[in-house]
């Protein structure tokens, strides 16, 4: 007789812990044929607020960690993900209805993307920052500082690669984030959260809210302690426009959705630039 498997409860990831939604809500996730996979937590406004609080609390320490340290932490995420290959591939395969080979390709690209961004941790400031030859007796330099708390919507396709491509450039520079994965394919995001929880990423640096972006994102767009929105995964233009309008209330930086992304292509620095702020420091020169 075959063994009865122990199934997992799929919860949110907030401040390094895995709470259920405070609303008590879940929703059904199915495969592409409509077959039940799991009940997944459906995040509420209160969960979003808790996640922002966790992200803000984590920001002070994460943003002042050394670049070397942040690079190692991101690399560690790749290491831990590698150990869960079979689980990720099975989840992608089942959720997205793709072949094992395609699922494996996606996972490989996602793990490699963490490694790619890990390597950027101690380099982007050397390219984006510089000294400025001002016309006077001053030493003047510009450096990129992290923007703060970023609320992001991951792409609706390529569940793990799209999610990784959105989170990694946000946190590599010292931001913390609240991310909403694809509501249709959220299972790999929860597995990623388990990897983050066990890979030296301080609690609260990444918070994962499963549920409906159209319901939760407006609260994040209006939240005064969120500094930026990444709307990559918002497919409905009118929803994106409304979120952008709400973001104006506290002058949030907004990265608009850009259709036609090829997540397998090597990224540029545009995402790192989008969520960093140039800070310029002056000091007199004198004997």
């Amino acid at each position: 007789m075959s063994r009865v498997e122990v199934r997992k409860t799929h919860k949110l990831f907030i401040g390094g812990a895995f709470p259920r939604s405070e609303s008590g809500r879940t929703y059904e996730v199915t495969d592409t044929n409509g077959t039940f996979i799991a009940n997944v937590a459906q995040a509420s406004r209160k969960d979003a607020r808790d996640a922002v609080l966790a992200a803000r609390s984590a920001f002070a320490k994460w943003s002042t960690a050394t670049a070397y340290n942040r690079g190692q932490v991101l690399y560690r995420i790749a290491e831990v993900m590698e150990g869960r290959r079979e689980q990720f591939i099975a989840e992608i395969e089942q959720g997205e209805g793709v072949s094992t080979k395609k699922a494996a390709n996606q996972l490989d690209a996602a793990i490699d993307r963490w490694v790619w961004y890990a390597g950027w941790a101690d380099k982007y400031a050397q390219l984006i920052g510089n000294t400025n030859p001002v016309a006077g007796p001053y030493f003047n330099f510009s450096i990129p500082d992290p923007t703060g708390v970023v609320a992001a919507v991951a792409p609706q396709d390529q569940s793990i690669l799209g999610l990784t491509s959105v989170i990694a450039p946000v946190i590599v520079t010292g931001n913390s984030c609240v991310v909403m994965p694809s509501p249709v394919h959220p299972i790999p995001a929860i597995t990623l959260a388990e990897c983050l929880a066990t890979s030296d990423v301080p609690g609260g640096v990444v918070n994962v809210l499963t549920g409906a972006p159209a319901e939760v994102m407006p609260w994040l767009a209006e939240h005064a302690d969120v500094n930026a929105l990444d709307l990559t995964g918002i497919v409905d233009e009118s929803v994106a426009t409304e979120l952008e309008r709400q973001a104006a209330g506290t002058v949030k930086r907004v990265r608009q959705p850009k259709p036609g992304a090829d997540w397998y292509a090597t990224p540029t620095l545009s995402r790192i630039r989008a969520f960093t702020e140039i800070k310029t420091v002056w000091h007199p020169i004198g004997a």
């Binding site: 400025n132 030859p133 001002v134 016309a135 006077g136 001053y138 003047n140 510009s142 500082d145 923007t147 703060g148 500094n227 506290t250 002058v251 702020e277 140039i278 800070k279 310029t280 420091v281 002056w282 000091h283 007199p284």
Partner: peptide, 24 residues
């Protein structure tokens, strides 16, 4: 948390020096 920090000086401007803000 500010875009321009002047140390032991203030209100210096130069075309080579980026100017602009954080937050609101």
């Amino acid at each position: 948390r500010a875009g321009v920090v002047w140390a032991n000086t203030f209100n210096r401007f130069d075309p080579t020096s980026p100017f602009g803000g954080f937050k609101e």
